[in-house]
Structures are given as C-alpha cells and as structure tokens.
Amino acid sequence: MNDDMSDESKSCSLPSSTEPTATRSTVPMWIFVVTLLLLFLGFAFFDKKGGWFDVRVYAPYNSSEELEAAQPKSAAAVAMAAGKKNYETYCGSCHGNDGAGKIAQAPPLSGSEWVMTKGAERLAHIPLAGLGGPIKVEGKDWNMNMAAMGAGLSDTDLAAVLTYIRGSWGNKMGEVSPDDIKKVRAEVGKAPQPYTGEKLMTMPE
C-alpha cells in the first residue's frame, strides 16, 4: 500500500503542498452582450404578459388594463362611459371634468337646476342651440355665452353626454334617449340662435 502511495506522489507533477488557484483572465465581451440581451428580452416578455405582479391579474389576461376592459358592462354603463369620453372632449374644457364649472368660464353642472330636470327636453336645447344672457345657476348669476357645443355630435353621442352629466357628480336623474335629442334638434332647426334663460324656462322640462 505504501508503495502505491509513493508511486502516485512521484508521478504527480505538482508538489503536494500547492492548492490549485484560479488565475485572472478576461471574460469574453460576448457574454455581457448575450446576458444583457437575454435580460432585455426577459423584461420585455414580462412587461407584455406578466401583469406586473397585480394580484387580480390571472391568465388569460396579460395586464390590469386588459382585465379592466374585459369587465362585463351593462348597457347603461356603456352609455355612461361613452358619455364621459365625449363630455371630457366637448364640454369639460369649460365646465370642468368634475362638473364643478370654472370661475368666469362656465357655470357648474353638478347640482345645476338646468341639468336636474325631470325630462331632458329643456336641457337638450342648451347644447343644441346654445345659451346666452343672464341665467341663475344654483343661486348665482351668470351672464355669458355658450355656443351650440353639442350640435356637431350625433344623437347617440349627445344623448350619452347628457345621460352622463345627469348621472354623475351626485346628479341622479334619468337617462336621455337619442330620440329626445332628435326631436329637439328638429325643433331648433339648422341655424339655431342661442336661447336665453327666459325662453328656456317657457319650455317643458
């Protein structure tokens, strides 16, 4: 046995006391490139499919936006969503996206007696024909001019806008149908003159 051992130590070229050590050598550049590329692809995939760790996002949905968009909505909710979009495009710049109005620009719509009417006939005249001259909104006097901001919208779109302003910011009045808009649009004619508050008050609600 001892013979074997001595044979072995003889044939080994390294002195038995030295432990092998790693030496310094440069890491090839391509490893960095490939690693970065893989990282990038991994993150791109995660961003597209991972849902960013949102607890509510499960397959087959890839993001919280996609899940939100898939939520089943009732017909009323769809009209409200369309109304909100058009309101913010055509009316919100003056009346505010929160419906609170803007000082020296436009009176509030939330809580306004012009909006919270039983029916929608009088209200529909305002965006279809325009409104000018002195009016009272929630006890405050306004004397400005609003052009026929809603005349360019289709019956469905304007109905949705009015449904939206009648059902948002604490307002709780009924839906407006495209047929109501159609009727008032025919009444105000092709080249409408802005109505005054007084004239509107003579109309049925």
């Binding site: 509510r56 996002v57 499960y58 899940l67 898939a70 939520q71 089943p72």
Partner: peptide, 8 residues
C-alpha cells in the same frame, strides 16, 4: 363571476 375572472 369575479373581477379577476369575469364572465356573463
């Protein structure tokens, strides 16, 4: 039907 897994 839940928000996480909606269906009609």
């Amino acid at each position: 039907p839940l928000y996480e897994a909606p269906f009609t």
